[in-house]
């Protein structure tokens, strides 16, 4: 379902579902957490929408919101990295792919981070790496649970080269410290979570949740297809397949995520358990 060509539907009342290809009433989709009422397809959602859905109303206080990407390699492909960043910033209204802050879920304080797949595929360069690392450090300092929602098809960001790759070790080291201190870390995988993000902090969580039908894995499906020169089996690299093979704890519908996280936090608080 991830390879279907998108057909253009005029902006307005209707949109086409990428899951079932039906034309669905836009307002109804939006009312239902951006989930298709016909097939339960979970549309990708922007960071602002994610914060609204996950956290208690007006509870979010953003940290390090002015952090900006630099261009350590002076990278240029068909367009320069600088121009690409400017383009993505304009498109998304975000300064970078990750947004981090403090908020409450059903009244419980958490450190909350989200990566947005619309910003250079939610890939991890220095800013994403630094923000996730600082989120873990803040969670440790305040002894608050860390919740990270990943949407990252890009993994480690190519445009910052080796520096991006090393963010995997940096985030991982910071999260290890948090975990050793007995503070819970819950990761929520959303469509898509791949590559260097999946092979570092996203997989490292105490509890791994995932939205239904999301593309998750290490190598991208195109790379695998090219390597093995075969078509990929149906349902391969979906969260359902990950659950079956034992790599995630649970699949949770978007509308129920808040409550499920809140329930788990009741058990994972070493300050109150005896």
């Amino acid at each position: 379902m991830f390879f279907k060509r998108k057909r253009n539907i005029p902006d307005g009342l209707w949109k086409r579902c990428e899951g079932c290809n039906n034309v669905v009433y836009k307002k109804k989709v939006e009312e239902k957490y951006n989930v298709c009422p016909e097939c339960n397809y979970h549309f990708r959602i922007p960071t602002s929408e994610r914060i609204k859905i996950m956290l208690d109303k007006n509870s979010f206080e953003e940290y390090w919101k002015n952090m900006l990407p630099a261009d350590p390699l002076n990278f240029k492909d068909r367009i320069s990295y600088k121009d690409r960043i400017a383009k993505e910033q304009k498109k998304t209204g975000l300064k970078e792919a990750a947004t981090v802050g403090k908020g409450t879920i059903e009244g419980k304080s958490v450190i909350f981070a989200v990566t947005d797949p619309r910003f250079i595929m939610g890939s991890m360069g220095s800013v994403v790496g630094e923000k996730i690392t600082r989120a873990a450090e803040k969670a440790l300092e305040l002894r608050l649970p860390l919740i990270i929602i990943t949407g990252s098809g890009g993994g480690a960001r190519m445009h910052e080269g080796i520096i991006s790759l090393m963010q995997m070790a940096k985030t991982s080291s910071a999260i290890s410290r948090l975990q050793e201190a007995g503070t819970p870390y819950i990761s929520v995988l959303t469509d898509p979570t791949l590559g260097g993000v999946m092979a570092s902090f996203a997989s490292q969580a105490d509890i791994i949740m995932a939205e239904p039908g999301a593309l998750v894995g290490f190598a991208g499906p195109r790379v695998i297809k090219e390597t093995i020169k075969k078509t990929l089996p149906k349902g391969f690299q979906t969260t359902e397949s990950m659950l079956k093979h034992g790599f995630i704890d649970m699949i949770v519908e978007r509308s129920k995520l808040r409550h499920e996280i809140s329930k788990i936090l009741d058990y994972c608080n070493s300050n109150t358990n005896n």
Binding site: M168, A169, S172, S173, I175, S176, E180, G195, M198, A199, S200, F201, A202, S203, Q204, G217, F218, A219, V223, I224, T227, I228, L232, P233, F236, Q237, S241, H245, G246, F247
Partner: peptide, 26 residues
């Protein structure tokens, strides 16, 4: 690079690498 094929994905390539990175930091 790590093997990009079906079996490797199904046996948790990302998880295996993530675990090693985390463990090696400590």
């Amino acid at each position: 690079g790590a093997n990009p094929d079906i079996g490797a994905e199904e046996r948790g390539q990302a998880h295996a690498i993530a675990t090693n990175i985390a463990e090696m930091t400590k």
